[in-house]
Design a binder for these strands. Sequence first.
DNA 1: TTTCATATGTCAACCGGATGACATAAATTT
DNA 2: AAATTTATGTCATCCGGTTGACATATGAAA
Lengths: 331, 331
Amino acid sequence: MKRVTIHDVAKEAGVSVTTVSRVLNDRGYISTEMKEKVLKAIKELNYIPNEMARSFFSNQSKFIALIVPTTENPFFGELTFRIEKALAKFGYHLFICNSLNDPENEEKYLRLLNEKRVDGIIVGSHNVDISEYKNYENQIVSIERKLTENIPMIQSDDYNGGVLATRELISQGCSNILCVIGDKNVETPANDRSLGYISEMEKNNLKPRFIEIPFQIGYEEKYKIIKDTFQTKFNFDGVFAGDDVNAKLFMNVAKEMNYDIPEDIKIVGFDGTQTMRSLVPELSTVVQPIEQLANEAVKILLDLLQGKKVKKESTLPVELYLSRTTNRIKN
Amino acid sequence: MKRVTIHDVAKEAGVSVTTVSRVLNDRGYISTEMKEKVLKAIKELNYIPNEMARSFFSNQSKFIALIVPTTENPFFGELTFRIEKALAKFGYHLFICNSLNDPENEEKYLRLLNEKRVDGIIVGSHNVDISEYKNYENQIVSIERKLTENIPMIQSDDYNGGVLATRELISQGCSNILCVIGDKNVETPANDRSLGYISEMEKNNLKPRFIEIPFQIGYEEKYKIIKDTFQTKFNFDGVFAGDDVNAKLFMNVAKEMNYDIPEDIKIVGFDGTQTMRSLVPELSTVVQPIEQLANEAVKILLDLLQGKKVKKESTLPVELYLSRTTNRIKN
DNA sequence: TTTCATATGTCAACCGGATGACATAAATTT
DNA sequence: AAATTTATGTCATCCGGTTGACATATGAAA
């Protein structure tokens, strides 16, 4: 059976296609009488406009792509969820790209922009090569990632998060505090977390110490690095873990090696997703305002697409959630 | 600046648009010489075909929508990831829909099909009303969800998973085993898990006992139901938790109330995502073949779209992963 | 009476590529 | 020499809407 088009509707209602289009798009002059006639025909024929044709003509797909390393990760799973919700409010749809931090992959996704398949992109990936991005500055925003001078960035107050986490560990009596950082070569705002850490350590005359766990490697490898850290250089009594996944892995390894948390080691994570908060409620962590990050990113991107002037940088406040891994009793 | 079109390329190369189109689509007769000339012009002008125009003409968007309750949940986060990967291999893109199990929401997404915005849909949602689906039987597959007679379903061997989990608990000495089920009103293959449980219990002359935890409610509410279960009717020594999230919540509440796992209570989960396996390695669980589920769903859907005959039901094997919550030492 | 906002319709052009029909050659086969 | 295959081009049409231009009525306001 053939698809019902606007022409069929026009014929059924005994009017011109222009009139139907006018009704559909609420344009020009239309009497209520005429409107009803058209709407009745639409209902009768069960007509549904072909959005692809509309998109083609208007040169707007109403699609936004989100590039994340992987939705497997709770933070990005939740971010994806929030962004999809936020976009839906404006009639946009979300199109998901798991980059796996593969530059080639990411480049492929950028091409979608040129192909006119998406109107804009939200980048939440941790990739290295950014020269490509320069060509798309007016249709991209990034979350927690500095791309180019002109691409708007929405981030949490990572620096303050680092300060809060470190202060908490110190106030609970830690003096040998390890800070987990991601890939040193990648300049992400997440690195500000360690700057906050450093500042707070130095303020207390403590020596900052780091361990590198690249974000993009698998759980197994992360586990190994952490295990190795325990085995070869254990002499820390506090860990600022960079994110909740690392924090939990630290907790697991500690338990495995019969260290008591929080007695021997205290831990603070970062992210504070619903999932982690509910499944690992004993973990003290710095809570990112994921929902606000999503809303803000969407708002700024849509403004950008409309040619409006937008803020180049938005920093949203974080909150410290205290629990048993830093000796705060919960329940 | 104006967009480079196929006409510009034709002019630049000194050929007709038809020739350019022939080169692009590898159709008709083309000499290598001519081909090179065209390709050179394409490169020089940095021409990128407008995919929206192509889609419009060919009536194929190359988009597939995935409807899930929420990507927040580790299982669906991982499923999303796998499906996106699988689709990418065939040049399809994934478009994400978080239904939140809201029927209205789900209906809205189905409309996308009619609007020609997506070519097909993979349903992984737990919704109730399914009458709508009848209109789309040749462009939908479902994962772990019986929709209509004709919509192909891909599922794990849930029944066997229930058997394996229950058998494990019994073999570890449990006799009062609680089984968590989702919404009783929703008929999902996940319910087969409890059938496997029942069968194995009866085989051992044990009395099946259930507790209902709807899938779609929040973590907090689930926590409350579980806490309530412990407080009002504690006399179980084993839990088949239905999924890993519930399993972990049971573990948390048990700890909170000073029950020892696995001494006092043994627990088996369901799903076995990478994330849960890595973050909660002590949890014994039934591992779903998520990657295969994704691959199979994609394969069947694409076959369906091509009008091929496809299997109406595919059942993939599960595996039992044994760990400390059922007294199996790990590490 | 003249102007004007309102109401309706027709027609053609356009968005960017895909494609079938048809014409014309040159190169190969038969 | 005739038939066939290969190579290239032009032209018009289509996909399904949107839109601007323009014509023609009203009834109301100036």
